[in-house]
């Protein structure tokens, strides 16, 4: 990843600390990345518990072999890849079916001043859950992680064109499902 974002640089610093201090510095890496990793894994596994299991497996592996992460060009991209691999393993093992519109298993949080928007957030997550995992992961990496198609392609081991086409399909589906919310945004 040529131009590292601020966040990727923070992950790099945490990785350096992990290499120096060992498992004691894992807490820093956890605090920095857990939310994003869980969000990414939830989009893939569509289940909070499975997502957390994937994140836990990846971080525990990082703690036992920090050099693996330290030797990566971009530790943040490497970490996302590790979580993705763990999530895919869990998906293959569990075959769990989760109702798209039921977000009961998710641990959610909404700022007090955004409570009126909670319904929209729920719709977004329901729409995201309805996407195939390979499209959902592209959406997460593009919109929430702010990555380019080429960066995403490197994480997912696919070409930037494939990433772009998956993203377009996903965006179309999301637009269809979220049409009511977008109309409300226009009205506001």
């Amino acid at each position: 990843m040529a131009a590292k974002t601020d966040f990727a640089q923070c992950v790099q610093q945490c990785t350096d600390r992990l290499l120096e201090d060992g498992v004691g510095a894992l807490g820093l890496l956890f605090d920095l990345t857990s939310h994003r990793l869980v969000r990414f894994a939830v989009a893939l596994t569509r289940h909070q518990q499975d997502a957390e299991d994937a994140v836990q497996a990846a971080l525990v592996r990082v703690a036992s072999r920090p050099r693996m992460l330290g030797s990566a060009d971009c530790p943040w991209a490497y970490l996302l890849r590790m979580v993705r691999n763990e999530a895919l393993l869990i998906i293959r093992r569990q075959h769990r079916s989760t109702p798209v519109n039921n977000l009961a298993d998710l641990v959610t949080w909404c700022r007090v001043d955004e409570l009126e928007r909670e319904e929209t957030y729920r719709e977004v997550w329901s729409a995201l859950r309805a996407l195939p995992p390979e499209q959902a992961e592209v959406v997460v990496l593009k919109i929430w992680e702010g990555m380019t198609f080429s960066q995403i392609g490197r994480i997912l081991d696919i070409s930037p064109n494939t990433v772009a086409s998956r993203y377009q399909y996903a965006r179309t589906k999301l637009a269809k499902r979220l049409s009511k919310q977008t109309r409300e945004v226009h009205r506001d």
């Binding site: 956890f30 605090d31 994140v55 836990q56 957030y121 977004v124 959406v139 965006r171 999301l174 945004v185």
Partner: peptide
């Protein structure tokens, strides 16, 4: 566009559960 803005705004809605941190750190140790 609006769709991306809606999705972006919902980014922090799903969080890690409270017990994940101690679970990860204990297992790693």
């Amino acid at each position: 566009d609006e769709v991306e803005a809606l999705v972006w705004a919902a980014g922090d809605y799903v969080q890690a559960s409270d017990d994940l941190r101690p679970r990860v750190l204990e297992t790693a140790r």
